[in-house]
């Protein structure tokens, strides 16, 4: 295959690295609270614009922006839970109400961002050299994206396997009832899930914004891919999400080349995630590493 070259592999790893950051929070919330959080897209966008303030408005290095984006987006995640989802939980509202509310939150956050920064395209300010790598080219930015994402994956692995907090988080997401019965303070753990999941979405937004550009629809554009990753990986599965993120990254980058080889508009790129999503739902609705759910 002439178009399966080093460049596609590099691009796939970059895309996958970004998707991992976005999908981890989405999959954890999906598993624990059992609803698809559509406002996750706007956490991504919010993170990207937070870093923009630090990087462009204040003229600081984008790394500071990344760190601030993590904290502020994490806090926004907590705020959305405290202000809306927790109240719905305590009223015993259905999963459906939660999804509608998440749409509402998304609309408010996205349009507020558009009100402040306008619909125009913006860019971060940084320099990025290009290097040759085994016949493909890779930029310094790409190296950073891959390195940051990999480092965070290892940190999360450490968190989930070695720390009390991480084990409790996994316990809660594996079996909330059992976790509650065994004395874990579910609500407290949930705060951490929102903080870490939201914060990582913010980081995903910064990486995505650096890799492409900033627009108020930035998060919305990757939401479908993020859901495809979550469902392909199996809802709630951290390792499944990592694998699925790289698989989808590859499918999208390979697919775009395939589209242009077939003289189909590359504007259909988002359809690749959609087709994968439909195939997963048809063939393996519980994902590659998720647990099959059976009646009571």
């Amino acid at each position: 295959m002439p178009f399966l070259d080093m460049q596609i592999i590099i691009n796939s790893v970059v895309t996958g690295s970004i998707y991992v950051m976005i999908a981890v929070g989405l999959t954890m919330i999906y598993r624990v609270l059992k609803f698809a959080n559509f406002s996750h897209a706007e956490l991504v966008t919010f993170g990207a614009y937070t870093a923009y303030i630090i990087n462009v408005s204040l003229g600081l290095n984008l790394f500071y922006g990344l760190v601030v984006a993590f904290f502020l987006t994490g806090l926004l995640g907590i705020a959305s839970d405290r202000l809306v989802f927790k109240k719905l939980r305590s009223k015993g509202s259905s999963v459906i109400s939660m999804m509608i509310a998440s749409i509402g939150i998304g609309l408010v956050v996205r349009q507020s961002i558009q009100e402040v920064w306008g619909p125009q395209i913006r860019w971060y300010e940084f320099e990025s050299k290009t290097y040759e790598l085994l016949g493909g080219s890779i930029t310094m930015l790409h190296i950073y994206i891959i390195a940051i994402s990999t480092a965070i994956i290892f940190l999360l692995h450490f968190l989930f396997t070695r720390t009390k907090l991480g084990k409790a988080m996994r316990g809660v997401s594996d079996n909330p009832q059992l976790a509650m019965a065994s004395g874990i303070d579910t609500e407290k753990i949930l705060l951490w899930v929102w903080f870490i999941g939201g914060g990582l979405a913010g980081i995903g937004g910064v990486l995505r914004g650096a890799d492409t550009r900033l627009v108020p629809l930035l998060g919305w554009e990757v939401l479908l891919s993020a859901f495809a990753v979550v469902i392909l990986g199996g809802i709630g599965s951290f390792y499944g999400a990592i694998l699925a993120a790289y698989l989808l990254g590859f499918a999208e980058n390979f697919g775009v080349v395939l589209l242009s080889e077939l003289s189909i508009s590359t504007g259909y790129r988002p359809a690749i995630a959609f087709i994968i999503l439909i195939l997963v739902l048809l063939l393996k609705p519980w994902g590659i590493m998720g647990k099959k759910e059976e009646g009571s």
Partner: peptide
Amino acid sequence: YNLRIIIIGLLLILFIL
């Protein structure tokens, strides 16, 4: 336009709540 969408979002949240 922004205001309109923000209000629609708020209405959704407030009514659901």
